[in-house]
């Protein structure tokens, strides 16, 4: 039994890999865009981390420690970059492929199943997201924002965040009707970016807002990456990890169900 399951899984991985290959061929011509994708997040890092950071100086955390504002904001922007990269890839690009390019209709005439298509898109999104994150962490290191080698752990943590958002992105791609829906998603993303604990400690928010923040997926991503890059590990980290895990599993499961429903019309 397990042998069969293993073999099936192996085929699935191989097949989803063929979609990866297609994306790679298609994007090879636009590699500048892939590489420069990290650029936007770096702009935010420079503007808010260094620019505004210089105005703030140091910030005192709720725990009592004092750190530079730049070191405080950078991990949050990194977590945001991980989310944005993967959401853009899974929601907008998949939506376009699905609705206008009719790409999947062609692919589904081959042995690939919707589940493998979804998996392929997730791989692809993770690889893109991973590249952005690695570049970002390298820049953080170059500007002395990483306290210890442990901070390298921020890279897998961000890939983990990407995975959590990949399922959501794919699900949204199947729910979207037209561009205005996409604008709505971006509105939510921006609200999370501005109020998910990126710029100021959540403890400084008004009491009644705090529970809403705790529900935001990005908040848990930010706290996870910030904890790692500042070297502050605590039991709360497990909560963040559990939340993101649930999101990754739940999101991907819903996504593949919706995708097969939408594709096998």
């Amino acid at each position: 039994m397990s042998v069969i399951a293993y073999a099936a899984a192996r085929t699935s991985f191989k097949r989803s890999g063929s979609l990866l290959h297609r994306n790679w061929i298609a994007m090879r011509r636009a590699w500048v865009l892939i590489v420069s994708g990290a650029f936007e997040s770096l702009l935010f890092l420079f503007a808010f981390g260094f620019g505004v950071g210089a105005l703030v100086g140091d910030i005192t955390l709720p725990g009592g420690e004092t750190i530079s504002y730049t070191a405080y904001v950078a991990p949050a922007i990194l977590a945001n970059a991980a989310m944005m990269g993967v959401l853009a890839e899974t929601s907008i690009n998949v939506f376009a492929k699905f609705k206008w390019m009719k790409l999947y209709d062609g692919i589904l005439n081959t042995p690939l199943r919707p589940w493998e298509v979804a998996l392929g898109e997730v791989w692809w999104a993770l690889i893109r997201g991973g590249i952005y994150v690695a570049m970002f962490v390298a820049v953080m290191g170059a500007f002395g924002l990483l306290d210890s080698w442990w901070a390298i752990l921020a890279v897998p943590a961000c890939v983990f965040i990407s995975l959590a958002f990949a399922g959501i992105g794919l699900t949204l791609a199947t729910l979207f009707r037209d561009w205005p829906d996409f604008d709505l998603m971006m509105a939510f993303v921006f609200v999370m970016f501005l109020f998910g604990g990126t710029f100021t400690p959540v403890e400084a928010y008004p009491e009644f807002v705090q529970p809403i923040v705790y529900v935001m997926p990005l908040f848990h991503g930010i706290e996870l990456v910030r904890g790692i890059s500042l070297g502050q590990f605590g039991p709360m980290m497990l909560v963040h990890v559990a939340y993101l895990c649930a999101l990754a599993i739940g999101g991907t499961w819903i996504a593949q169900r919706r995708l097969s429903k939408a594709l096998y019309k």
Binding site: P180, L184, M186, L194, F199
Partner: peptide
């Protein structure tokens, strides 16, 4: 399309004001 642009044109700058202008501003 006007309703789709209300967020970027009106709400987003206001949200920036609250989050950055007032939130971060309290540390400046």
């Amino acid at each position: 399309i006007w309703n789709g642009t209300v967020f970027t044109s009106v709400f987003l700058p206001i949200l920036y004001m609250i989050s950055i202008g007032i939130g971060v501003g309290s540390y400046i």
